[in-house]
Design a protein around this nucleic acid. Structure first.
Lengths: 153, 153
DNA sequence: TATTGTTATACTCTATAACTATA
DNA sequence: TATAGTTATAGAGTATAACAATA
């Protein structure tokens, strides 16, 4: 018998969020989701979502990086990277070249088009970052990043 | 002609992550994912995932809260809450009672079993929080939460 | 007309198992 | 035997559209 009660009960006017807001995990997730939401809007112009942007940026700053290295760096699973890389290659943003010493691996290299796209996209990313963290001072922003790194690195 | 180059190219020994790590969004997401991973492991004993835990905790601290208020507070969509609440009701954790003044709304109330579960689950959540943020001092942890709130509130 | 709660459904993201080619 | 990359697929999480009941 699923418990149901027919009698009305007092309602809540202001929600008490004290407990959940005392958790780092809760706050980090909420903050990340807010920034990601703005990211999706602003970066739609480049057809780049957060993970795709991170992958392309890492390739741009690390020509010759392998899929394995990307997966390890970003904590993504290999099967979920294959299609992304193929799309980048199809759109002329990434070129695959043989790894110099490991015949199993493939080096991923940015094309000039990739580098041009990244110049714009990374500029936009910094802009939206500054907007999303507008209520933080430069020092606070630096502190926030330092403390977040101490959690996940 | 999808650009492929047959000539080997130098490989990357150490990945340069400088740019992505300069973004608050990237760091917040990575930190949140690390904590959530630990959360999933530790809270599996209670069969509670992060959102379910947040919902149940808010009901426990706000007897009579409505689905609408939960959705607004946690930024989740009403259709994705229905099944969750029904499961809680089915497991004897939540009771629905009529809203005192709004015939459309339903007040959600914790059962004694819910309160007992929350005492254990919230204790476990605090433990894993302290483990996940073990590299932070108490002051740093407080600062981190304060700065994260300034981003999303 | 707007809002609460609901159903059905689609889409995205992430996870697992199994395979090949090479080390 | 272990690893890099791939394929196919399953699952979880999230989003949209439309509806009934009430305000």
């Amino acid at each position: 018998m699923p418990s149901a009660c027919p009698n009305p009960a007092p309602s809540i006017d202001k929600v008490n969020t004290e407990y959940v807001e005392s958790l780092v995990g809760y706050n980090a997730r909420r903050a990340a989701l807010v920034i990601i939401e703005q990211f999706l809007q602003r970066m739609a112009a480049y057809d780049l979502r957060p993970v795709e942007f991170s992958v392309l940026s890492l390739i741009g700053h690390n020509p010759g990086i392998t899929s394995r290295q990307l997966c390890a760096t970003l904590s993504i699973l290999p099967p979920n990277l294959v299609g992304m890389i193929n799309q980048f290659e199809k759109h002329g943003l990434v070129i695959k070249r043989p790894h110099p010493s490991d015949g199993r691996a493939t080096g991923l290299h940015p094309t000039p088009a990739c580098e041009a796209l990244l110049r714009e996209a990374e500029k936009t990313a910094l802009e939206l970052e500054n907007e999303a963290t507008a209520r933080l001072s430069a020092a606070e922003r630096k502190t926030l990043i330092r403390l977040l790194k101490k959690v996940y690195l």
